[in-house]
Amino acid sequence: MSKKAVSLKQVTFKYKNSTKFAITNVSLEINADDFLLLVGYSGSGKSTLLKTINGLIPNFYAGTFGGSIKINGEDIIDKNPAQLAKQVGFVFQNPENQISNLTVEKEIAFPLENFGVPRNEIITRIDELVELLGIERIRYKSPFSISGGEQQLTAIAAALALDPPMLILDEVTAHLSPNSANDLLKILFKLNQEHDKTIILSEHRLDRCLNYVNKIAYIEQGKLKISGSLKEVLSSKEYPENLLPKVPRLFYELARKSNDFNNFSSKFRKSFNVENLPITISDFKKLMQIEGEYHD
């Protein structure tokens, strides 16, 4: 049994001046070694949920809050985001609007300065982070002379500066070109696998994440509908069809249509049972090879 990193119990929040609850009774456990993908339509409460984990809600946004949130077993309700910065790193959607310093290096130093870390330690930490994220080249550059992908890597470096065990990323690839988005996901995977970071990511481009995440949580109109392993969630009836990644979608399509072709054996049809749901392309290839045997 792996260590619990986050545990949400019955978390509910309504923004001040809003009539609707943004999230209602969300209970969710996240393990220390998880790479969790949070999925849902725009406006379903993904951002709100993520912001409860680093204390922006209810400390920065006014509103009605209910429930309990524990990080590493410790209740965080009365802690503000600054106090939590050592436990949770947060990266936002818009790369440009989260960088306030005039060089990449100074942006990474900013959280360390805020915590009064001595200068020589700050420099060592910057050395480590630019190497880890592969941004040595842009260390002394100004944030507006670098690409969106590099800006987002800078923001990740700043979020990691205090070495929090957990990183939360709110649709961070939205502003990036496809290749930089893919590169960024690879780096997150590396952080999860090699540096033991818990990663919580909300993202619209599901297909590109499937090779990296181990868990999915689906949220709809502020309610957590289902969470668990990829297979569990994507084969569940709670999960909406038009948010399916391409491969499972094709699988369901084949399953449905194979009924119209009545010259297939029942054995063949059985291979389209949800138990065999392929998630990635290699899963699908495997399935196809099994299916090949039915012909001979």
């Binding site: 680093n54 922006l56 920065f60 503000n80 985001p81 600054a82 106090q83 910065a85 050592k86 949770v88 790193g89 947060f90 936002f92 818009n94 609007n97 989260q98 960088i99 306030s100 290096e105 100074k106 130093a109 900013f110 959280p111 360390l112 300065e113 805020n114 915590f115 009064g116 870390v117 001595p118 200068r119 700050i122 420099i123 910057i126 923001a155 700043a158 979020a159 500066a161 205090l162």
Partner: peptide, 26 residues
Amino acid sequence: MRRSWQLAEAIESRGWNATKNRTYLY
């Protein structure tokens, strides 16, 4: 307005005002 709001969120999450004895890289 949107930008200043987002910026405030970001610096808050980066430990803004965490201690009184702030240090400086330079």
